[in-house]
Every structure is written in structure tokens, then in C-alpha cells.
Simulated assay, not measured.
Amino acid sequence: MSAAWIEAFLEALAAERGARANTLAAYGRDLTDFRAHLTLRGSDLAEADRDAIEGYLAGLEAAGLAPSTRARRLASIRGLYRFAWSEGWRADNPAARIRSRRPPRPVPGVLDEAAVMRLLEAARCPAGSAAAQLRALRLRCIVELLYATGLRVSELVSLPLAATAGDPRMLLVRGKGGRDRMVPLGAEARAALAEWRAVRLAGGASPGPWLFPANGGRGHFSRIAVWQQLKRLAAQAGIDPAEVTPHGLRHAFATHMLANGADLRSIQALLGHADLSTTEIYTHVLDARLKALVFEHHPLAAPGTG
């Protein structure tokens, strides 16, 4: 019965939430390990209570598993029992009141606005041979889009050419879990996109399906190629290459938007986060802004008052 519960739960995740294969495999491993733990103690998923779950988690801690791993195992168990309760297989959810002791997620290092402007300026200066100028135009478009939209690099390189037709003000992006979202484009990003598209479509030959085709002509440009070119561009702009990554530009997009007045829910939608808790790593920006607002506008917050 226990194995059937796990199988049904994974099928529901795939059918109802569009969970990817890697996600399903991780849930499956976590729950199979928990089930094996219960079996060794003469129990199963249908009988386990809160003490059994907490005992399992304590064993993981004693074995030296990282807090993040233990938190993920608990999330898997909690999800399974929520599903079992909704299906009427159990009258309770024994994991419902167990809280994870997962440490707060670290705030990612973020390029400041001046550094991003230097990076963009370096990308706007194509020079050299025709081939070098072509590569520079492509890189400029990539950098402009990454910073203007907050796209994941995997989302960017897999953009279809057809999705960018007609000088779009919005891009339709397919994100994690097959979820689609609309992302607006600013003037600089649209200009870089239009210039790159004109080059892509020149020559009359079939342009292929991707906005950024691979150099070899098969598939799209790779994530690692974007990473490598950003490193070279950072050095050209006088920025430590270790500080510049595609995901770093995504973090810069979110942080700079919040610092300039955007709300957290809007950032969640633009980044394609399924859960607001994922976006909350950026609340340090909101904390700083709110503190500045109090010191600037509250009548008793000025130095020397009170």
C-alpha cells in the first residue's frame, strides 16, 4: 500500500501541477527513503504518526544531512500526507504541525546599478570584423534582455524567433513547470532585439526556430556559452568576472526594481516564481527602503529628536 501511495502522489504532481521529471525523481527518492525507514521499524505510511516523522528527521540530522536536505525531505513527506488526507486515505495529516528548521536562504550577491550600466555600455560597442560585430550584436541583445526582463538564462536561450516578431512590448516566456508568463520589454531591450533580429533574418535563408541559434547551426545557443561570454564582457568593462553571471543579472533585475519602488508580488510574477517565499530573499531591499522612508518622513525620526 505504501508504494501505491507514493506512486499516486507523484502521478498527481505530474498531472495537476506539471511537475518536471527531476522534481518527481527527487520526491520519489525522499519518500522511498522515508518508507524504508518506517518498514525497518515495523510501520508504514498509513500508520506513521508525528513522532515517527520527527524521529526520522532526527535521524537525518544525526547522520549529518544538510538542513536544506532535511527541509526538502520534510516538504516531500508533508506533501504526501496532505495528498493522502485529501484522498480520504487518512483522517489526519501527521506532518501538518512539524516545522522545518531550515536556515534562511542567503541573499545573493548583486551587481550595483553602476556596474550593470558599465556592462551594458561595453556590450553596446561592437567593433572589429563582420563576424566580431555579429557576435557583439548577439551579446548586446542577450545582456539587454537578461537585465531588462529577469529571465532565467535557460528561458532566454530557448526563446523562439517567432516570439519576438513585430517589435514586441511584451514577451511570452515558458518558465519552470511549463508555466507561461508575460514579461514587458523596455526601449533599450527592444532596440537591441530589433537590431539582432534584422541580422538574424538577413540573407533570405531559412532562419531556424531560435532567436539565438547555436554556432554550429543545431539547436539554440547554450547556457554555458552565455556564461563564458559574460565573463569576457565583464573583464572588458573593468568588472571582476567572478561577480558577473547570467543569474546575477536576474538578481540585479529584481533587486534594482524593488529598490526603485516595485512591489514584491509584481517581482514574483516577473521572475516566474511559483511561491512568494522564493521571492522573499529580496526583502532586504524592502527593509532598507522602508527604514529610509521612516527616517526621511517621520516627524520624530530626525537625529536629535525624542
Rank of each mutant, 00 (worst) to 15 (best):
residue 288 A to T: 10
residue 58 A to K: 07
residue 15 A to R: 15
residue 147 Y to L: 11
residue 9 F to K: 05
residue 163 A to C: 03
residue 79 G to T: 11
residue 132 A to L: 06
residue 220 H to P: 12
residue 235 A to R: 13
residue 128 G to W: 08
residue 215 N to P: 02
residue 178 G to T: 03
residue 254 A to L: 10
residue 95 A to H: 09
residue 200 R to D: 05
residue 212 F to Q: 02
residue 238 G to C: 11
residue 118 R to H: 04
residue 111 L to I: 04
residue 69 T to K: 04
residue 206 S to N: 11
residue 129 S to K: 01
residue 17 R to H: 13
residue 287 D to E: 14
residue 209 P to L: 09
residue 281 I to N: 08
residue 25 A to D: 13
residue 43 S to I: 07
residue 160 P to G: 12
residue 42 G to H: 14
residue 304 G to P: 02
residue 267 I to T: 02
residue 193 L to E: 02
residue 113 E to L: 15
residue 99 R to V: 14
residue 176 K to R: 04
residue 158 S to Q: 12
residue 207 P to K: 04
residue 285 V to S: 09
residue 189 A to R: 07
residue 178 G to W: 01
residue 162 A to W: 00
residue 56 Y to Q: 11
residue 156 L to R: 03
residue 50 R to I: 11
residue 85 W to P: 00
residue 153 V to T: 12
residue 148 A to G: 13
residue 155 E to L: 10
residue 237 A to V: 08
residue 277 S to D: 09
residue 254 A to E: 06
residue 276 L to C: 11
residue 79 G to R: 11
residue 75 A to I: 09
residue 299 P to C: 04
residue 166 G to N: 10
residue 191 A to I: 01
residue 276 L to D: 10
residue 214 A to T: 08
residue 33 D to V: 11
residue 97 R to T: 12
residue 123 A to H: 11
residue 33 D to M: 06
residue 226 V to F: 10
residue 107 V to M: 14
residue 89 W to H: 14
residue 81 Y to E: 03
residue 43 S to E: 14
residue 189 A to Q: 04
residue 96 A to V: 13
residue 130 A to T: 14
residue 159 L to M: 04
residue 132 A to W: 03
residue 291 K to S: 06
residue 230 L to Q: 08
residue 190 R to K: 05
residue 201 L to T: 03
residue 27 Y to I: 08
residue 13 L to W: 02
residue 175 G to L: 01
residue 109 G to R: 15
residue 147 Y to W: 11
residue 205 A to Q: 10
residue 115 A to Q: 15
residue 123 A to W: 09
residue 174 R to N: 04
residue 224 I to A: 13
residue 72 R to E: 08
residue 204 G to H: 02
residue 186 G to K: 07
residue 306 G to D: 09
residue 232 R to P: 00
residue 106 P to Y: 10
residue 1 M to Q: 04
residue 173 V to Q: 02
residue 296 E to K: 01
